[in-house]
Design a protein around this nucleic acid. Structure first.
Ligand code: NAD
Ligand code: NAD
Lengths: 232, 232
DNA sequence: ACGAACTTGTGCACCCATTCACAAGGTAAA
DNA sequence: TTTACCTTGTGAATGGGTGCACAAGTTCGT
């Protein structure tokens, strides 16, 4: 019904989960899924599934459910999954290498096409099949491979400079793992993944529950949560 | 004022950021911080800082600001940062090794004390100074090192089994990187970090903005956001 | 002693997201 | 065709979080 309206941020953040849940149905099959089933597959509740899907349009059949294949197509379209968005990884250290070497990103349309590092021993070589360039080559690498996303996996001190260089090169989507606040222009989409902060949130609940002798007393109704559920 | 009440989830998720922001002030110094300054350091706005801190109690001085050292102490106390929470990493592959090798966790009170893997070539050896055990040793490793947190970095197929074993061993805090929905008992605190999902959220905005010719038209007021801002 | 300049703490209004509950619409069997 | 049963789509209630705006309290210079 709502096929043109704005999709709420919270919904956008869940669409990839639905898409992942639909993986259990073979492509080209004629399976139907109910909101209840899809909710179980994605780890949310059924009402949320129905409301989320209603923002994409009316693709279900009352009394029956959703056609799995068609639903996959529509969610993919909304997310723009048909596109391929090449990634450049900045900082080929512990984390950068793990990310660059991970096949799951390319499978979802985000191939790592190049890496940037300042270490002279790494520049010019290939690490796990990814060519490593010096920072000065960033602009040409971005242009050559049509890079759409930059990942920052440099030490925190170098992160802001790296972000600036990515922005200068025309990148508007950045994912950073550096535990530091980055400043970027308004039109740049920045997602900061701070694993130490995540651990400290776990630590808060541990602390609280141990205070009262083991029982979890924190009072939260829903403790199991996808990290990154924050909007946009 | 509010020194005993429940602290909202959104606030808990920001406390680590404030703590990190306070790092710029030397320990033992007599510096004061205004909510405005701290907001800039943490990447949020000043009203939020003041409201968040008010849940911990009234530690500021009107007309002056907050004593940086004392504030650090109080936030640390609320988060239980004085405690040390040992971690076991399950799955010493690309990602597990990067995590185990990362010094930033131990600095914040989360030392990686052991690893679990099923690969016979890894069991019994030390990787980057971390001893690797087989899954059957999990319970004894947990008991011996007082492990409080389990990190799941196994392939997705092995993730649920690993979660079950962690729970059996008495772990109540789990951080998972496997792109799959995990089921754990209610009293277990599970945080799922799904990087492919994060990338797809970036992709959604890329898709939307490119549709209209480069201008960002998505209409979100605040695009720069800390991933993991979701409650609990 | 007093006023100007600051900064905190918080009541309040607003917004977004979640969840319920049910009418509307569809299937299938008799 | 009718009846029983199922599931979607969505108003409406609820709740949590955000941010404004300002009173209350503190410092500093005169
Ligand atoms: N390793 C982890 O598991 C982990 C976990 C959480 C956060 N992080 C964060 O991720 C970042 C990377 O961590 P790491 O463990 O891989 O660090 P690392 O030291 O192993 O690697 C950093 C890499 O960045 C390169 N580098 C330095 N300056 C650069 C620049 N200006 N441009 C490009 N490359 C540059 C270095 O040469 C090195 O190869 C850090 O900010 C860290 O705090 C890492
Ligand atoms: N590498 C990345 O950057 C990245 C990014 C996002 C998500 N992930 C996810 O993180 C997980 C790990 O990724 P990876 O790249 O390190 O994979 P990997 O294949 O390099 O490593 C997996 C490790 O887990 C071990 N393992 C297998 N079954 C096990 C079990 N039952 N118990 C303990 N260990 C077991 C394997 O022996 C191997 O060492 C995967 O679920 C992946 O989807 C990884």
């Amino acid at each position: 019904m709502n096929s043109i309206g704005r999709i709420p941020d919270a919904t956008v953040a869940r669409l990839p989960l639905y898409l992942r849940g639909l993986d259990v149905f073979p492509v080209g099959g004629a399976a139907t899924v109910s909101s209840e089933e899809l909710a179980a597959l994605a780890g949310v509740n059924a009402a949320k599934v129905r409301k989320d899907l209603s923002y994409l349009g009316t693709y279900g059949t009352r009394g029956v459910g959703y056609d799995a294949d068609f639903l996959r197509f529509e969610i993919s379209r909304a997310l723009g999954v048909a596109n391929t968005w090449p990634i450049v990884v900045c900082g080929m250290g512990n984390l950068g290498r793990a990310l660059a070497n991970h096949s799951g990103f390319a499978e979802r349309g985000f191939p790592v096409v190049a890496a940037i590092d300042t270490d002279p021993d790494k520049i010019g070589v290939e690490i796990d099949g990814i060519a490593v360039y010096g920072p000065s080559a960033l602009a040409s690498v971005v242009a050559k491979h049509d890079v759409a996303v930059g990942i920052i996996a440099t030490p925190p001190e170098a992160a802001q400079g790296t972000a600036d260089r990515l922005v200068d090169a025309g990148i508007t989507s950045i994912m950073s793992f550096a535990p530091i606040v980055l400043t970027v222009p308004d039109d740049v989409d920045l997602r900061a993944v701070d694993l130490a902060t995540e651990l400290q949130i776990l630590g808060f609940h541990l602390h609280r529950s141990r205070l009262v002798g083991g029982a979890d007393v924190s009072g939260d109704r829903e403790r199991d949560l996808l990290v990154g559920e924050g909007p946009v």
